[in-house]
Design a protein around this nucleic acid. Sequence first.
DNA 1: CAGGATCCATATGGATACTG
DNA 2: CAGTATCCATATGGATCCTG
Lengths: 113, 113
Amino acid sequence: MEIKNKQQGIMIVADVLDIVGGKWRGQILAHLCDDPKRFNELKTVLNKITSSTLTKELRYLEDIKMVERKIIQDKPIVIEYKLTDHGMSIKDLIVHIVEWGQKHRDSVFKKDE
Amino acid sequence: MEIKNKQQGIMIVADVLDIVGGKWRGQILAHLCDDPKRFNELKTVLNKITSSTLTKELRYLEDIKMVERKIIQDKPIVIEYKLTDHGMSIKDLIVHIVEWGQKHRDSVFKKDE
DNA sequence: CAGGATCCATATGGATACTG
DNA sequence: CAGTATCCATATGGATCCTG
């Protein structure tokens, strides 16, 4: 694929990074790539996230149709979060991100600590 | 490529998004993909960024060896910012980001306004 | 279990003015 | 031209407590 308009391409970069960027969004999407997860499952794997933050991030991802919220059971209530079809498409992008990170982690991440 | 350790892969995602995420970093890198640019050139294309913010972002990108600062001329001073070799490697990733953004912009960006 | 509510800390970026 | 310095606004995420 080629990007016709350079400036537009950069705007798209900004838009996408807006979606996948931030402290948690990318991680949440990455976790949901594998399989659907419940609220507290996500809360556990994300380790340091709080309920309210996780809720906010999930709502955002639902709003932009990346993630789907499904009520699995009513009492006690069980919710399952999974990627939508568009959400699934992010898998490829995440793979690319990880690939780049693996190739360049030495030069780029070393200094972090 | 395959990612052996899933959890580690997600950590890498977080690390990479830390680099390329944020409001300006991705855009700066995208702009520098084309060719080196001077401080005020970047300031112009980035439109709403302030000097101090641009300085901060550039320093960060220099620190992680993504961007190189070159003094082109001494008086009046002229500085040129360009991608390092690792920096150049980000081009592929940015292309993937733009590709994804183009494919999914309708479903994902529509609601933004 | 899956959040909502409230209040709080910090990070991020911005406005404005100034400099060699 | 390429920044620095100060001070400031807001966004982001967190802590804690509470609930159906």
